[in-house]
Design a protein around this nucleic acid. Structure first.
Length: 591
RNA sequence: GAUCCCGUAGCUCAACGGAUAGAGCAACUGCCUUCUAAGCAGUAGGUUGCAGGUUCAAGUCCUGCCGGGAUCGCCA
């Protein structure tokens, strides 16, 4: 379904073409000043020079043309403002008809950006096996999951891949440490995946052991040799390393799933670096044969520098001088896999901005090596560094990293307190109350994170993350739940939403805002920018709240008006539901 | 040193090159005897880091400077 602005753009394009003006200037947008008009087109001004005319005169001509084409059906008012803005206001009939169509639209106002359903591989989350998930995984997971939903709603077929860090030397280190300490191997021989306590015990043990093993690896040469030995053993899929790794991976996955479930973040694929392994050797051979991979200082590299580079782009190292692979190699191997398996139109990485150069190298090498053709877009949708309130990289008070589950638990605890204070959810059964607290907490955390511009650095502020007033997730839930409760109450009284809209001044602003949804979804999808959705959701909630505060609905005696207002409530609720679902935020039935 | 990102209200952030730069928090004033006050209505708060330039129009594009962060071959 098109937005009103899009519909008006189409008409205005006709007018521009008829006047011999370039139609790409005909774009209509929501007016910057609501007092003046509902919509505006700025196209007359850039046309002025080429047409050698006064922009206001061009605007007048466009308006005349629009009137002739339209015949009074769409435009209620057209005028020239300032240096040559074309101000537009639509007729009441047009607006109410658009609303009625919107209410029946099965796509809920989502635009179609990929009519053929092109495939997108979306790489996000990326937690490491044998480590606890921490706040550092929050952004990638939340943004990635939102993009999965958003691009999916816009018509793409999205394949979300968690891309685990589950391969290489870190695994060898851990395995070597276990084998070194005989008493611990018992954990593996007795491992029973059906026993949650066993699984948890092993996970906790790995989390504790990992940093110690890493420290040993640094200091102890003999241990380093063992770690390398078992890394090789793992890569050759030999025992015992391979079997132990399978358990390590499985246990870690269970722990991760718990975290992702709590966050409401989902994936279509649980692949990892290990899945790239089988593609690497043939790929390296192929790159050597093509002469793209070259020897340099004992390593095998793919030079990716270009003459017009402003900066120095170092070559991508395929094989270290000791023959081991690096993560650039793994990423290339993963690309081989994805190209064969998923045939995507785009591959998007939701990874920290600091890895920008790395992806630049990988993308260039992939093009150069013929792994990914130019027709497939490679995108690093990076996000800013997560800092503490002091502007420095985030640390807990104790100086460590905060576990993701601790963060969520804190949010839920705070949500419980606030529900109690606000006397919400009072008469609910305990299970439902707990569910509401969880939804409120997740809404708070996700919205606080997603509302930031993706590329900017990010101040990780616990107080802000668990805020419930103002521009927050819980505010949006609160508004949505209020609407739901109102609609239920109305239905009990036999008052139902009408199919035709009657708009008075208080609700027209809300109605116009609802019609904007396709524009915001398209903009967010094209820029991989969930914060645009956050902004829009907040505006809708705020506008509804204003309407709600100014118009009493159930006591309205004019039945048509009451029905129209209820329909507007229903439409608003559905809009909030759609946008919030694109953000990965669930609305409770009541609270 | 080179390159990239960022610099907007006291704080946290918005603003497809377009009209009078907007929100939230914090501060202040009102509003619960009608649908959920996690709310609503309002007040106050700005030389968009600085200086030039391009443009009918610059927070936005270009150049230079200042400040902060990040990255720059065998870690991921």
């Amino acid at each position: 379904m098109l937005s009103i602005a899009q519909k008006l753009t189409e008409v205005t394009e006709q007018a521009f073409s008829a006047l011999g003006l370039p139609p790409e200037y005909a774009r209509v947008t929501v007016s910057a000043q609501a007092e003046t008009a509902q919509f505006q087109c700025n196209g007359a001004m850039p046309c002025a020079k080429a047409a050698k005319k006064n922009p206001r005169q061009i605007a007048e001509e466009v308006i005349e043309k629009l009137r002739a084409i339209d015949g009074g059906k769409v435009f209620a008012a057209l005028s020239v403002g300032g240096p040559g803005f074309i101000n537009m206001t639509v007729t009441e009939d047009f607006l109410t008809a658009h609303l009625a169509a919107l209410a029946k639209d099965t796509r809920m106002g989502c635009p179609v950006l990929s009519p053929d359903g092109e495939f997108i591989v979306l790489d996000y989350g990326g937690p490491n096996v044998a480590k606890a998930m921490h706040v550092g995984h929050l952004r990638s997971s939340i943004i990635g999951d939102s993009l999965r939903r958003l691009l999916g709603a816009a018509g793409y077929v999205v394949i979300g891949d968690v891309h685990l860090g589950d391969w290489g030397t870190p695994m060898g280190m851990l395995i070597a440490d276990y084998l070194d300490k005989q008493e611990d191997s018992v954990i593996f021989t007795n491992y029973d995946p059906s026993r949650p306590d066993e699984v948890e015990r092993l996970m906790n043990d790995m989390v504790e052991r990992y940093p110690k093993a890493a420290a040993r690896f640094k200091e102890d040469e003999a241990f380093r040799a063992k770690a390398h030995f078992h890394t090789k053993q793992l890569q050759d899929k030999e025992q015992p390393a391979f079997g132990m790794w399978q358990i390590i991976r499985e246990v870690s996955k269970i722990a991760m799933e718990k975290n992702f479930l709590a966050l409401g973040v989902r994936f279509d694929l649980w692949k990892g670096e290990s899945d790239a392994h089988d593609f690497i050797a043939p790929m390296v051979e192929d790159l050597k044969r093509k002469g793209i991979a070259q020897e340099s200082d004992g390593a095998l590299v793919v030079p990716v520098a270009r003459e017009d580079d402003k900066k120095e782009v170092p070559p991508l190292i395929l094989l270290k001088s000791d023959g081991a692979v690096l993560y650039g190699t793994t990423d290339l191997g993963t690309l081989v896999d994805r190209m064969q398996e998923n045939k995507p139109a785009k591959i998007i990485y939701v990874v920290d901005q600091r890895q920008g150069l790395h992806f630049e190298q990988v993308f260039r090498a992939a093009r150069k090596g013929g792994i990914v053709p130019d027709s497939v877009e490679l995108i690093h949708a990076g996000f800013g560094t997560m800092n503490g309130p002091d502007g420095k990289p985030f640390k807990t008070r104790a100086g460590g990293v905060m576990k993701l589950e601790d963060l969520i638990a804190m949010g839920v605890e705070k949500a419980r307190e606030r529900l109690k204070e606000a006397k919400l959810a009072e008469d609910m059964p305990p299970a439902e109350k707990e569910d509401v607290a969880h939804k409120v907490a997740i809404a708070a955390i996700k919205f606080a994170d997603l509302q930031n511009n993706r590329v900017a650095d990010y101040v990780f502020d616990l107080d802000r993350l668990t805020m419930f007033e103002g521009k927050t997730g819980p505010y949006l839930l609160y508004q949505a739940v209020r609407i739901n409760s109102l609609l239920k109450k109305a239905a009990e009284q036999g008052a139902l939403p009408a199919e035709t809209f009657i708009l008075q001044e208080p609700e027209r602003r809300l109605a116009l805002l609802l019609c904007e949804m396709p524009d915001h979804i398209a903009l967010a999808a094209r820029n991989y920018a969930p914060h645009i959705l956050c902004d829009y959701a907040y505006k809708v909630a705020q506008e509804f709240s204003s309407f709600y505060g100014n118009c009493h609905i159930l006591s309205e005696t004019n039945e048509g008006l009451r029905g129209s207002r209820l329909a507007l409530c229903a439409l608003t609720h559905r809009h909030l539901q759609v946008i919030l679902s694109l953000l990965g935020i669930q609305i409770p039935e009541r609270m």
